[in-house]
Design a protein around this nucleic acid. Structure first.
Lengths: 289, 289
DNA sequence: CGCGCGTTTGAATCTAGTCAAGCTGGGTGG
DNA sequence: CCACCCAGCTTGACTAGATTCAAACGCGCG
């Protein structure tokens, strides 16, 4: 890589005060990779993209954070999306009374800051739970890239949509009636995400405290602890401090959905008419493409 | 209670003539169908867009649904996003056990089906809670439009991002510790959304049952009813069946965040380092733009 | 070694769920 | 026109489950 490609990155925008200078040479001295190209970025996001065609030479900067450091704070001006390249984080929202609520636990391949596209400011605080390596995706640059290449544009849409799918699934989990179901759901989703990024799906270490899990799930830390102990007791998992071993993944998945007895909300009626899918009076061809 | 409101739109259609030509504010007639152009669509979404430049002649079809009808079902192939032009709906997810959970209550200006861009299938069921008028946005057509015009492309990004912001705020509400806070938050958000689309922010009719509210908030229908009664008792609101009058909006907003006593999760520590915002090792200008 | 943090576990309290009964209002059919 | 029905809503009593307060433990770290 040469520094020739870099200037494109540096536009004439008023730079915000938080940034510190470091030369590219100094960057090279640091451990790990400092730049990624588009192919690597798409790989990370599991987005199919044929890199040979476009943008192969474009580079995106990495940034390093150490445990406990704050990546960005709510209200800060929005510049860049971030992709987690390695490490574990949490995002929290802090209301006017100082109450904190954990909103997500991003890990490798996750995207940070998507809500900020609309609000123009970062919408939550993001904190590193471990040493982290993030890739910056300056949004305007990304959008420009998308505008030039339809594949990339589509990839961006899918990226954003996927974030929504994940939030949706989180809402599902939070809607669970009891602590057991929520914790089970939490463990299952962790298991799936770990396995997606190459870790074991049956044994992993929690990167967050019980307090943070509780905040995320809308439970007290004691309830989280008790529920984990209970699941251990039953034999579905084994818990040793932060180390979780899942023994009965299928049962755990079942637990996530079946509360104790009957359906939580009873049966919600669809309304008067039967559940027949009707698209009334569509003009032929108006839907397709 | 006589059903109030719906002053402007009032879609009281004869059951047979669904597509009868009724002059709905945003919509023109063509071959007996209703259509909207891009300007009207952007207006509806509150997205700034100078229509004179592009796509002014493109038309998007309206579809009508009657109370109880199902707009689409989970798993169905994804074709189109929908914008709510008038009416009220709910989206629900149904798990393998048949449990239903209400995920959202879309109303005028809301966008349906965003998660489906990623999954390629509709991700939840959508049901009309009242007679509805929706505008179809065939996604591929929309994307093509965006690709041709950067402003539209950007509008799409903002649209998607905004959906995420809303989901985020819903997660916040669901994370509330007690029923009071959740119901208060629900009422406040309804109030804000109603006022955004031109209704009174202090008096409105609930379009959904207590059961549906409970499903949405993760509470039983009895708890919803009791909480509403309690808020009525205190004098913060008045409840008469489905008609809500908000008397102390500020107090309600306060209630939404301050539970009973202390912060729910205690104080979540940021980690070892203080909450100073640090962006280590940034190349100057790499963040901006 | 002691300190602090995170965790576990127990006991008391209280919130919200469950079950059940009664009420209301809109719609239907005699 | 009225009686009836039914879905939705309210309210009460009881109970299960979660929070709160409190104490004690393990572990890493200065």
């Amino acid at each position: 890589m040469s520094s020739v490609q870099m200037p494109e990155i540096a536009p004439n925008f008023p730079s915000s005060a938080v940034q510190q200078a470091i030369s590219i040479e100094a960057g090279r001295q640091c451990k790990g990779k400092l730049w990624s190209n588009l192919t690597e970025v798409c790989d990370l996001l599991h987005i199919p993209f044929n890199a040979s065609m476009a943008g192969g030479e474009l580079l995106f900067q990495h940034v390093q954070f150490k445990t406990g450091q704050r990546i960005h704070t709510s209200g800060q001006r929005f510049d860049s999306l971030c992709i987690v390249n390695s490490g574990f984080l949490k995002t929290v929202s802090i209301d006017e009374c100082g109450n904190e609520q954990v909103l997500s636990f991003p890990m490798k391949g996750d995207l940070l800051g998507v809500e900020s596209i609309y609000t123009k400011k970062y919408f939550s605080d993001t904190v590193a739970l471990s040493d982290c390596n993030l890739i910056l995706l300056p949004f305007k640059r990304l959008a420009a890239l998308g505008h030039a290449h339809a594949e990339i544009e589509n990839a961006i849409y899918e990226m954003l949509s996927r974030e929504l799918v994940r939030k949706q699934m989180m809402v599902n989990m939070l809607g669970a009636p009891n602590a057991e179901a929520r914790v089970a759901g939490f463990l299952v989703s962790l298991s799936e995400r770990y396995s997606e990024i190459g870790y074991s799906k049956t044994m992993f270490t929690l990167r967050m405290t019980r307090n943070e899990i509780g905040s995320y799930l809308g439970l007290s830390l004691e309830t989280v602890s008790r529920t984990l102990s209970a699941l251990h007791e039953i034999g579905l998992i084994s818990v040793d401090q932060r180390v979780i071993r899942i023994k009965e993944l299928d049962l755990l998945k079942l637990l996530r959905r079946i509360p104790s007895s009957k359906s939580r909300t009873g049966r919600l009626k669809a309304g008067k008419s039967p559940s027949i899918i009707k698209w009334p009076q569509l003009v032929p061809g108006s839907l397709v493409n």
